[in-house]
């Protein structure tokens, strides 16, 4: 498969992830779409790693997953805490950034 196919696939997944963050109002679903974007990028990195026969791209993917995992744990902790205060995960209500 020429690598352009992988580029298209990865970009499609990425853009679907972006549309997801823009369309949904549920904070958790938005979070999941962010994970989807990260995975799209991982896919692309692996494809390039095969193209250049270089393993540092796969190491990058490894670290990407590390970061994603840490980020998810902290992010969900925050969402849970907000839920305790406001009893909702609607991002229109979670607008404390305004102040």
């Amino acid at each position: 498969m020429p690598v352009q196919y992988y580029i298209f696939l990865s970009m499609a997944l990425f853009c679907i992830g972006i549309m997801g963050t823009l369309i949904r109002r549920n904070a958790i679903i938005i979070f999941m779409c962010i994970e989807l974007m990260l995975n799209a990028v991982n896919l692309l990195m692996v494809a390039f790693s095969k193209m250049y026969a270089d393993s540092s791209a796969q190491v990058f993917v490894f670290f990407n997953m590390v970061v994603a995992a840490a980020e998810v744990s902290v992010g969900l902790a925050i969402i849970v805490m907000m839920y305790r205060k406001v009893h909702s995960v609607d991002i229109n209500i979670l607008n404390r950034l305004k102040h």
């Binding site: 972006i18 963050t21 991002i91 607008n95």
Partner: peptide
């Protein structure tokens, strides 16, 4: 611009 709505911020980022 500072609506406090995260969704709006993401939109602008995109």
């Amino acid at each position: 611009l500072q609506t406090g709505q995260v969704g709006f911020y993401i939109f602008v980022m995109v």
